[in-house]
Write a protein that binds this DNA or RNA. Structure first.
Length: 727
DNA sequence: ATAGGGTTAG
């Protein structure tokens, strides 16, 4: 099997043979093909090459890795000529397997040590995350060369100790050791992690001074530096000036356009770049998945496979995440099977996205199965499972799991808050938010958008104001999303002046803010102002009106009796704005006509509709008939309403309310009975007040409040007093 | 000894 290697007839061929053997041994070690390795070993012995230094070291590593103690002993006996190298090699092998104590003991017992021994030990310890021991040896290292300094600096950066890394870098310069290209790439990465623009610029100065500006790796890391600090122009400048560009440079610049939100330019670069590798594919797939285009991410994944690239861990996790967002369970299971096949299902990244996949598809049981099978869970795994339970309404499970998270982060809290929000437990969402603040966790924009939505739903001005103060305190008040959430919250809590103030102060306004403000005004009875704002939006911005804005406009017209104006807007919806009206628009138009007494017009309008209208539409007509005493039309509308009611559970409620307002109590009872028979659940009426920072809830028909008995007793007392006052 | 890509909340 090594026949191609046997034509050794010159010194040059011998060297090539040794190199090839070393490569083969490395591969056999990696793939655990010990039999192949053994065979090669035999051949090497026959050729008298088994004690050649490089070959012997690789053989030793292979036997160490497969724990063949007999062979190890045999080899160690042979190694008298280069003991030091073997010792270094043993130390390395121990460190790679995490045997820190053995490695250190071996090192301490060595009769002599060279530069490599020290550097190997220090960098190995840092790779194992044992910073203290590494620094202990670093301080005692008698050799002061670039390698050990660089090993220490890059090791610290890998352990996220960038500040210490920079301190070491300064010490290095002070002790007059010249940094090399690898030193600079590590140092630049430290600057990225520290987010210090000035520091990075000063490093760049030295890069130029020492003549490394044309080095590929150093330039690539500088591009990354400027990109991560948001200095896109500088990043682009360095990239454009680079004479030599490789896949890494192109992938970095590709990522920059995604970061800037310029998807088209990113796509153009991807299509036109001279070379791609699996990282490039991985980057574009994840970016498309993150920016909400899951379909494109999946298509790209398929293309990647077609181009014969082997997907790596990142790719798998990105594509699973994309499939989770598409709720594509079958395709996801397929990928799960692939991951199992190549033994990657235990990876935290893949595992987390698998948990997410099963939960997003409504299968929390399988999600939990994957979760439980993960041997090393990080906070993301926990968060995925918590939000998975939240998503499926299993809040008890979500809370229980949340409490078990060993090290929570703000996403953990956000997941639970969002869980309460999604299940309409607005007060609980608030409580969790308070706990979060008390625990010292930093809330972010997601936290606030959830909590502001919770206070909008509670319509609690007090709570809303409290959150607003926190938004201010954590300096998010200039953010457009926060502004929008605040405008909406104040509008829903009835403080339209505050909405107006925030809206007016926003320097840039997007579609959502305009929608929130126009809607807020319309729903709070400021119909004219709402219409004025709509007209202002049309004049001063390039934002096209959307469904919701037009609904608000119709609503406003209806409430200030501007029927013809409303009809005008309704008729322009499809023609001018290209928006197809939906059921709610129809209902608002009927409501508008009915309120102003144009009842026959309303009936004709309903007849002209493409589909049978929703129950609400008939209810709007019916209430108009009541105001204007149109008995016969009312009868027809009521009949239609009761037909429509059968289709939708909400219809019965509407019907019973209409009967109730007309005093037709027998019909009310009949409707209620019908609802019970059909098992229609009516969400109970609920009301609440806030007292001393506590919300007290009251439900119709059920006495849930702890003190309801006492309260009814007091009410009775008061009633008695009032009556005695009048008699 | 080094540069580019990854999972969760909204």
């Amino acid at each position: 099997m090594f026949s191609t290697l046997f034509s050794i007839n010159s010194r040059r061929n011998l060297k090539a043979f040794i190199r090839k053997s070393v490569n083969l041994l490395e591969n056999y070690t990696k793939q655990k093909l010990i039999n192949h390795g053994n065979a090669l070993h035999c051949h090497l012995i026959k050729m008298g090459l088994s004690s050649q230094k490089y070959v012997a070291v690789k053989l030793l590593i292979m036997y160490l890795d497969s724990r063949k103690s007999f062979e190890i002993d045999q080899m160690l006996k042979e190694f008298n000529g280069f003991n030091l190298v073997v010792q270094n090699c043993l130390i390395n092998a121990n460190l790679e397997r995490g045997n820190v104590t053995d490695a250190c003991q071996l090192f301490d017992e060595m009769p002599e040590r060279n530069e490599v021994s020290w550097t190997a030990l220090i960098s190995g310890l840092l790779k194992q995350g044992n910073v203290d021991k590494a620094m202990f040896y670093f301080e005692r290292n008698p050799f002061s060369n670039v390698f050990s300094w660089t090993a220490a600096i890059s090791g610290l950066v890998q352990n996220k100790l960038s500040f210490q890394a920079m301190r070491l870098y300064k010490d290095m310069l002070r002790s007059r050791v010249l940094p090399n290209d690898i030193t600079f790439t590590s140092v630049v990465r430290a600057c990225v992690d520290l987010g210090d623009l000035g520091l990075g610029r000063s490093v760049l100065g030295l890069v130029v001074k020492f003549g490394f500006e044309d080095n590929l790796c150093v330039s690539n890391s500088m591009v990354t530096f400027f990109l991560r600090l948001g200095e896109y122009d500088s990043a682009k400048k360095i990239f454009d000036r680079m004479e030599e560009k490789d896949v890494v440079s192109w992938t970095t610049i590709l990522d920059m356009y995604f970061e800037m939100g310029d998807l088209r330019e990113a796509r153009r670069i991807f299509d036109e770049m001279p070379e791609r590798n699996e990282v490039t594919w991985s980057a574009i797939i994840s970016r498309f998945s993150q920016s909400g285009d899951a379909e494109e991410a999946v298509i790209l994944f398929r293309q990647m496979i077609q181009h014969q690239f082997k997907p790596n861990v990142s790719c798998y996790s990105s594509v699973i995440s994309a499939l989770a967002n598409l709720e594509a369970l079958e395709a996801g299971k397929n990928i799960h099977a692939h991951a199992l096949k190549i033994g990657m299902e235990m990876n935290v990244f893949i595992g987390s996205s698998l948990v997410d996949l099963y939960c997003k598809c409504g299968n929390t049981k399988d999600g939990r199965l994957v979760f439980d099978s993960l041997p090393e869970k990080n906070v993301v795994c926990w968060n995925s499972m918590v939000s998975g339970y939240s998503l499926n309404g299993q809040l008890a499970e979500a809370i229980e799991l949340f409490n078990q998270i060993p090290q929570k982060n703000n996403v953990s809290w956000n997941s639970l808050i969002a869980g309460h929000l999604g299940n309409k437990n607005f007060a609980e969402a608030f409580e969790v938010f308070n706990e979060m603040i008390l625990s010292g966790e930093q809330p972010n924009k997601s936290t606030f958008s959830s909590v502001l939505s919770a206070s909008a739903n509670l319509a609690s001005l007090e709570k809303g104001k409290y959150v607003h103060a926190k938004v201010f305190k954590f300096r998010f008040h200039h953010d457009i999303f926060m502004g929008t959430a605040l405008v909406d919250m104040y509008a829903k809590s009835g403080s339209i002046e505050s909405s107006r103030k925030i809206f007016n102060r926003m320097p840039t306004k997007n579609e959502v803010v305009w929608t929130a403000m126009i809607q807020g005004l319309a729903e709070n009875g400021f119909a004219e102002e709402s219409l004025r704002l709509f007209e202002q939006m049309e004049l001063t911005s390039s934002i096209p009106p959307n469904e919701l804005i037009l609904l608000s406009v119709l609503f406003a017209c209806s409430h200030c009796g501007l029927v013809d104006k409303g009809l005008h807007y309704f008729n322009s919806m499809e023609k001018v704005y290209g928006i197809k009206p939906n059921e709610r628009h129809y209902t608002t138009v009927v409501d508008m006509l009915a309120r102003s007494g144009r009842l026959s017009e309303a009936e004709k309008f309903i007849e002209s509709l493409p589909n049978e209208p929703e129950a609400n539409t008939w209810a709007a007509l019916l209430s108009g008939c009541k105001i204007y005493g149109e008995e016969r039309l009312a009868e027809r509308a009521a009949e239609k309403l009761s037909v429509a009611a059968e289709k939708k559970p909400g219809g019965y409620v509407l019907l019973s309310n209409i009967y109730a307002s007309g005093g037709r109590w027998i019909d009310v009872m009949n409707t209620r009975n019908l609802m019970n028979q059909k098992g229609v659940k009516k969400s109970g009426g609920c009301s609440w007040i806030e007292m001393r920072n506590q919300v007290h809830m009251f439900y119709s028909q059920v006495e849930i409040h702890t003190f309801s008995k006492d309260m009814y007793w007091v009410l009775q007392l008061l009633n008695g007093e009032i009556q005695s006052y009048f008699t």
